[in-house]
């Protein structure tokens, strides 16, 4: 007799689908009976609103604006964070010098900064890109710095004994040695790029998913607002999944994590 295998990915997937179906099913039934759909809408209405969005040209315009802002904000913030984090890992004095200032900058509540950014950078894309970049930068920066500091000294020594130059140490020891930390920072900061952009769009804008969400919510179009939120979730999840693929490839040298059961299957 075959035992039921809880580790089987197909079993896990089926259970996940069941859970999701249950959630939306309960929501659909509850809305209109026990809770007012005015506040939470209902899955069928949201699906209709989603269909409406996807069929409209305006949606793709919003998507493009938000997408570009997010991409640029993430790109600038992540590149800056990784480069500075890895570089400071190499220069202990500069790292110590800048440490309190970086901590202070990171302590600035970015939400509070948003109105000022509009004053400084205007109401166009720049303010949104900057907001996203500041959120992304510190997450990737601190992760990259920790990563470089966690690289084992013995590995550096081996490379130096074998004649590695400063640049080779950086490229062949520090960067790959810190890769798992850097990738964690890059992954963790991804949703924050969207948060920064949406926040900026809430403040002042005439395009973008955040603008549209704000418009729907303030005109009591709950289904439309929910549809927008779901689209944002989908964007974050899609990018996250892509990232997981990239990470699995780049870190293929790692032993499998302990929580994956190693018990033999008979």
């Amino acid at each position: 007799m075959r035992r039921f295998d809880w580790q089987d990915p197909r079993v896990v997937r089926a259970a996940q689908l069941l859970l999701a179906a249950g959630f939306f099913g309960v929501w659909q039934i509850a809305a209109g009976r026990w809770i007012d759909p005015f506040y939470v809408s209902r899955p069928s209405d949201i699906a209709a609103a989603l269909g409406h969005e996807i069929a409209s040209a305006q949606f793709y315009d919003d998507l493009r604006v938000t997408g570009v802002e997010m991409l640029l904000g993430y790109g600038v913030g992540a590149a800056g964070g990784v480069v500075l984090g890895v570089a400071l890992g190499r220069f202990a004095f500069v790292a110590r010098l800048l440490d309190p200032f970086l901590v202070a900058l990171n302590a600035v509540p970015r939400v509070a900064l948003a109105p000022m950014l509009i004053v400084w950078l205007g109401i166009d894309m720049a303010s949104k890109i900057f907001l996203a970049a500041t959120l992304v930068f510190f997450i990737t920066f601190f992760n990259s710095l920790s990563g470089v500091r966690a690289v084992e000294r013995g590995l550096c020594d081996v490379a130096r004994v074998q004649g590695a130059s400063g640049w080779q140490i950086f490229a062949k020891v520090m960067l790959p040695g810190a890769a798992s930390w850097i990738l964690t920072g890059l992954k963790m900061s991804l949703p924050f790029a969207l948060v920064g952009v949406i926040l900026g769009e809430f403040m002042v804008s005439s395009h973008g998913l955040g603008y549209r969400l704000n418009l729907y919510a303030t005109s009591y179009n709950t289904a439309g607002a929910m549809a927008m939120i779901m689209i944002m979730m989908a964007i974050t999840m899609l990018l996250g999944a892509g990232f997981d693929k990239l990470e699995a490839h780049l870190l293929r040298w790692r032993p499998p994590p302990a929580w994956v059961s190693a018990a033999p299957r008979i």
């Binding site: 013995g154 020594d157 081996v158 004994v161 020891v173 790959p176 870190l251």
Partner: peptide, 12 residues
Amino acid sequence: GYVTQQDNLFPW
């Protein structure tokens, strides 16, 4: 050259 006590192989 130096063969260190720990193997110090690069895990990646």
